[in-house]
Amino acid sequence: MSSAGRSRREKPSLRRAFSWLRLREEAIRCLLFGCALLSVMTTLAIIFVLVTETMIGIPPHTSFFQDVSLSEFFLGTEWTPNFSAEQAHYGVAPLVCGTLLITGISGLIGLPTGLMIAVYLSEYASPKARSICKPMLEMLAGVPTVVYGYFGLRFLTPYFIMPVFGGLGAQGYNALCGGIVVGIMIIPMVASLSEDVLRAVPNSLRESGYALGATKFDVSARIVVPSALSGVIASFLLALSRSIGETMAVAICAGNMANLSLNPLEATQTMTAFIVNVMQGEVVAGSTLEKSLYAVALVLFVMTLVMNLVSQLILEKFREAYQ
């Protein structure tokens, strides 16, 4: 048969037809979609559990807010859910206060240090210094949080906080220690996220700065960091939402006493520390104490969700700036 004749007859059809190749593609697509769906479903399931335990009880059970009024929960100043029924109070303020105290201290310590490390790594460090510094940071990020907790309790408190602040009435368990430890824990996160956004600042901006007679510090502080500011802020917010959610180190260092006080030298209790503390003991299923865990978790969930959303928004704005 002549080749001319063949090419005239066998025009491949453009119509879709069954083939193993297409089946495989379709199967892969479904698999990947399933994986993506899993994370969405998990989030939804968490929200479902939190909401049913806290707000809308499924008939045989009552929800937390059916046992405790909204006003007591949000306006009460005492948190004693494990006392006997008459003496139990369910005001979440001390836990929120403890959480904000720990988060605040950790932010004061972790954010500036992390940013300075990021500036050092992105602007000042020689490739060799970077190659030493970065793995060290990653190691710091990989230390289990329980170890941080014991580092705080057995080292920071006796050898630093007691000698310095003992005269001011520092307690063996104190919020300062918890805050410092969490601050150290978020340093690697701030440093590596901020370093990424600082390095993304175009070199041409740095060169323009140098050409105007700027020193390295001028370029870092007046050009690079301001140009990457929204990214830096986003990294701060992400780190702070990690601080809010941190549990073990705080439970170990800061004691377990819900305390409506901003004194960092006293023991305190954060929301997560409360949850883990109750779970360690014996909690009667269906009791108000058990349901209060979910109510606290819901508050925590909303707080971190808001912070994550805000940091996402800021990051998006940052990306637009360099289009």
Binding site: S204, E207, S208, Y210, A211, L212, P226, S227
Partner: peptide, 20 residues
């Protein structure tokens, strides 16, 4: 170098306004 660059200014191919 800093005082040298103050006397010898430079303009680049790509305009590089600072985000200010």
């Amino acid at each position: 170098v800093v005082s040298l660059r103050k006397r010898v200014g430079m303009v680049f191919q790509k305009s590089t306004p600072f985000p200010k």
